[in-house]
Amino acid sequence: MANWNDTRQQQRTGFGSVPRAGDAVARGETFDAGLRKHMLSIYNYMTSGVLLTGIVALLTYQTGLAYSFASGPLMWIVALSPLAFVLAMSFGLNKMSRGTLQLLFWGFATVMGLSLSTIFLRFTGESIAATFFATAGAFAGLSLFGYTTKKNLQGMGTFLVMGVVGLLIAMVINMFLGSSTLAMAISFLGVLIFAGLTAYDTQRLKREYEYLRGTEFAGKAIIMGALSLYLDFINMFMFLLQFMGNRE
């Protein structure tokens, strides 16, 4: 005989039962909280990396070491070292632990500081600071757009990546031509391309969380996401500095 007074039986969910709306809301709130934590971790890493780069660049300039990196063999070593870190992190991602990736990220931010120290030899400190804050404001707005927009930016991302390749080719060509007009055109396009990549990468990182959450790879994704946004910020800053920077 059925026990209609058994509350445990009444609370048990059987086949064909309708999910309660409260359960869906709770799952949505949990997902949103996890996403916010994930993105905040990415922004914290990225911001810390930018600050470390700025501190190293300023100290390197103040100690006079920047003059050693402005020309000669050391210039090429310092300039290419960040690329070596990026390649190591990208190709060794699956084999490296999260701790190793963290060390490489901080090492990358440090050598970038050494590389960027030479901008203090070419531009005034006031114009560098003004450009930095202008870049920070633009980055915040673009990243917020990428996070909140409902529009799919994937198609734009493919176009922008192709634009980066074209930009690199144009920069190599101009190393031989030395055209100031082409240099300004490259800087203008560079600002636009990395501004677009900021919005695109933010949306991409947000969507990646949907299938990375709860996995072992999620911790690594935070560091690699910070690296992507870091590169967007630094490149936008460097190209914008060609317009806003006052020469020494």
Rank of each mutant, 00 (worst) to 15 (best):
S180D: 12
R247I: 11
N94H: 15
K206L: 08
L144E: 06
R247F: 11
A185Q: 14
F217H: 04
N152D: 15
I173N: 10
A130V: 12
P73Q: 14
A33I: 07
I77R: 01
V111D: 00
R12W: 09
N235F: 03
F233V: 04
Y147R: 11
L168V: 13
G141A: 08
A199L: 07
A185I: 14
T202M: 15
M162K: 04
T202D: 06
A134F: 11
L114Q: 08
A136L: 13
A138R: 05
N94I: 07
F139A: 06
A66Q: 00
S68G: 05
Y45C: 00
S71N: 07
V25Q: 13
R36T: 15
G141K: 09
I42E: 00
I55K: 01
G190M: 07
F145M: 09
T110N: 08
I128K: 01
L189S: 05
A24D: 06
V86F: 10
T124D: 14
L167A: 10
A2P: 12
G49D: 06
T149D: 07
T7P: 07
A170M: 12
T135E: 05
G107T: 11
G64V: 03
L74R: 02
A88I: 13
A218R: 02
T124K: 09
Y45D: 01
L103P: 02
T60C: 04
V161D: 03
G34M: 08
V56N: 07
F239D: 01
G190H: 07
R247P: 01
D32N: 14
R247H: 14
T158C: 03
Q154K: 12
F217Y: 10
K150I: 04
L103G: 15
L177K: 10
L227C: 04
L35F: 10
G99A: 13
L192W: 03
M75I: 01
I128Y: 00
T63V: 08
L116W: 09
A140H: 05
Q11A: 15
F15A: 15
K37R: 15
L65E: 02
T63N: 06
S180R: 10
K220T: 07
G155Y: 06
F176G: 01
T198V: 03
S90M: 04
